[in-house]
Design a protein around this nucleic acid. Structure first.
Lengths: 227, 227
DNA sequence: TGTTGTGAATCTCTTCACAGCT
DNA sequence: AGCTGTGAAGAGATTCACAACA
């Protein structure tokens, strides 16, 4: 479905805001888990309530897909879910690698294994010889030395980094040199990245300390959290 | 119609932006891990580079503490770290509980145990009888039924939720009724919360799917990630 | 000279408000 | 009547740019 790109945001051109992409991912999950069973239609208001946002924002986000609700009936659940699929997963599935098979790494393997249809966890890497060549949660663990070759061979474009801060940058560099284009970084330090790549950091300490700050009621009324 | 005037950011009054609080937490960690060893002073520019931001933003963030750098010399590392401590940790330490001792929960126990001086993980909860009364990563596991009493007894104000989506809301409700004021939610669904509380969601699926989207180079140049 | 602190400008995201459709 | 799609207003966050200062 090609867009006609009216004005303002424009549908297929321009850079899409990361926040909107994240919410689309959430809407899709809600559509599948909450609304698909009952079938039929949803209103932006219902989706907004489930997602913790506003109806206007849901509609604005859905504009991104050049969508398809009709007034008075709302959106067809199946069609909308398919529309989001097409937009988010455009093209073929992508291979994912996990680097750092510690406590967090193992939890992430368990979490992501067989979860996203289009995102397949294809390999894990660690520099601990005791872990190499074992299979954790259905995922083979390779030595970090094998990363470049394995990443290329398996067509991996995305890496999840769950190593100590001291190794994060060098691991990221290795990944990018091997052809990785996007990184989800759990190491407690930001990583520098080349152009034409994307990195998103999940900083658990920062997240907890932020909650702790506002839990004290410090500084008046709570602002809107990031999620 | 310019309504004018008296605001901008102001130093100690007004509501602090969550993003700024998060970055202060990061600056503190960088000060300790990277800059404290060398001692002396830092420039906003150096801190910005390490944090992956801009010098202007660092200075703007530090205004929040009513701070203390002097031109030409930058900021005293020790003094700045102490300033952030005072601002973020104002008051006494807070107790933290973890709910949901699955793969992710165990990893989070390991991650947070003994990490933050002021935030102490005091209890874990799970509804699986096989896990109850065991000690995981130095943290005693209680039955969910014991949550209200235990949370009150141990003075816990913050909860980390790592349970399946279907249980997240009821767990959150239980926590709030027991006196919890802030929640860090890892369940893949938003939770509704009462006033005067704060919830931050960490949605791993959303994070990975967002990275996957931009890793394809979709929609032109990558926008600024959230971290 | 080189940096801080900060008003003002800019950019981005969210919400409002309403025309148009069913 | 009640919803969608969207221009326009509003709110927030970031960056610019420069006076003050050591």
């Amino acid at each position: 479905m090609v867009r006609a790109a009216r004005n303002t945001v424009s549908c297929a051109t321009g850079k899409p805001p990361a926040k909107t992409i994240g919410r689309l991912s959430l809407y899709r999950r809600l559509l599948r888990d909450l609304f698909a069973p009952r079938g039929g239609n949803v209103y932006s208001r219902e989706l907004a309530e489930a997602a913790g946002g506003t109806a206007a924002q849901v509609r604005r986000d859905l504009m991104m897909l050049g969508c398809s609700g009709c007034p008075r009936r709302g959106y067809d659940v199946q069609e909308l879910a398919r529309g989001i699929d097409e937009y988010l997963d455009a093209g073929k599935g992508q291979g994912v690698a996990l680097v750092g098979v510690g406590n967090l790494g193992r939890a992430l393997i368990a979490f992501f294994s067989g979860r996203c249809s289009k995102l397949e966890l294809r390999a894990a890497f660690d520099n601990d010889p005791a872990k190499v060549d074992r299979v954790v949660g259905g995922c083979k663990v390779y030595s970090i030395d094998e990363l470049p070759g394995t990443v290329r061979k398996l067509g991996i474009r995305i890496a999840i980094i769950a190593v100590p801060a001291s190794e994060a940058q060098s691991v990221a560099d290795t990944c990018f040199r091997a052809g990785v284009r996007g990184i989800l970084n759990f190491a407690p330090t930001p990583v520098q990245v080349p152009d034409r790549t994307y990195v998103s950091g999940v900083d658990l300490t920062m997240a907890l300390e932020t909650v702790a700050f506002f839990a004290k009621g410090a500084g008046g009324r709570s602002p809107k959290p990031d999620a």
